[in-house]
């Protein structure tokens, strides 16, 4: 793509076909994104965009590149080819001279503060209490005062139903509780975009509901844009504006959750949904 191209003239498919999402330019644009690991092409000239406030669920078979998409957005991986834009500004790249070069660490630090991520394995810091897990980044990265951060930590813990665990140590919590703390930790940074990568799949079945309820509440009460990889079809149906079905690094099908889950058109979508139901995810 030539450097003068802007995301406005990058025609991405979809772009929030639910009426609820505000009608501005897209927030996230993947423009011909290729990601390879060695010889393995994981994302193959991928185009898609996500509107402000839109909640998108990513589904697809194992290895289809869903995690890779979230990791690219969290800057944990770098694109091999193509560009990612956020709010009309280059994200995977930065302007230099008349062109774009791969983004450097300083640029990334500036850009990724709008984005938060919750991981499958929670990744709480075992060397800190629950309170510190939530407070440290706001204090050190955003420069929030300790009092203010502590108060926010309390509010967020109440929100995720763990107000009494503020002084606990992560190892004293169940998986479901740890994941709810991880959600609070991500929210404490006031992200505009929240990335959720199979956040319930490491949990015992009886703990899944609690975590999903928290996320439902976040979805209802905030306008955070969410990209969510999940096998929880009921949850996806409830909260997402749009579902993207991935297969072999490309979008096989996309649409409103009612359509994708109720009336899938592509053979691959049908067989994938069938296998998910059978495996009882």
């Amino acid at each position: 793509m030539s450097p003068s191209d802007t995301p406005e003239n990058t025609t991405a498919p979809g772009g929030g076909n639910s009426g609820e999402a505000p009608a501005e330019g897209p927030l996230i644009v993947f423009d011909q994104v290729v990601k390879r690991f060695g010889d393995l092409t994981v994302l193959d000239h991928l185009d898609f965009s996500v509107a402000h406030g839109e909640r998108v669920t990513l589904i697809g078979p194992s290895g289809s590149g869903k995690t890779t998409i979230l990791r690219l957005l969290m800057t944990l991986e770098k694109v091999t080819e193509g560009h990612i834009w956020i709010d009309g500004e280059p994200f995977s790249h930065m302007p230099r001279g008349n062109g774009l070069v791969p983004a450097g660490e300083t640029y990334l630090r500036m850009k990724r503060k709008r984005i938060g991520m919750v991981f499958q394995q929670f990744n709480l810091f075992p060397n800190m209490s629950v309170r510190k897990n939530i407070m440290e980044a706001p204090v050190h990265v955003l420069g929030v005062s300790k009092d203010e951060a502590a108060q926010k930590a309390e509010e967020l813990l109440d929100l995720v139903g763990l107000g009494d665990k503020i002084d606990a140590h992560p190892t004293q919590l169940s998986g479901g509780q740890q994941q709810r703390v991880a959600i609070a930790r991500a929210l404490a940074m006031s992200p505009e975009i929240l990335l959720l990568d199979e956040v319930t799949s490491a949990l015992d079945p009886e703990l899944v509901t609690g975590v999903l309820d928290v996320l439902r509440e976040v979805a209802e009460n905030t306008d955070i844009t969410m990209l969510c990889v999940t096998h929880e079809m009921g949850f996806a149906r409830d909260v997402s504006h749009r579902v993207l079905m991935f297969d072999q690094g490309r979008i096989a099908e996309e649409g409103h959750p009612d359509q994708i889950f109720g009336d899938p058109r592509q053979e691959r979508t049908k067989s994938f949904l069938k296998s998910v139901l059978e495996n009882g995810h």
């Binding site: 969290m74 800057t75 944990l76 630090r109 990724r112 503060k113 984005i115 938060g116 991520m117 991981f119 394995q121 990744n123 709480l124 810091f125 075992p126 060397n127 800190m128 440290e136 980044a137 050190h140 990265v141 930790r185 991500a186 940074m189």
Partner: peptide, 25 residues
């Protein structure tokens, strides 16, 4: 590595990551 990735997701600088997470662990 997952711990380091969590610090990146919270936008900690290299120095903050070392001091707050990596060295204590």
């Amino acid at each position: 590595r997952a711990q380091v990735e969590a610090t990146i997701a919270l936008n900690l600088s290299w120095f903050q990551r070392m001091r707050l997470v990596v060295l204590p662990q």
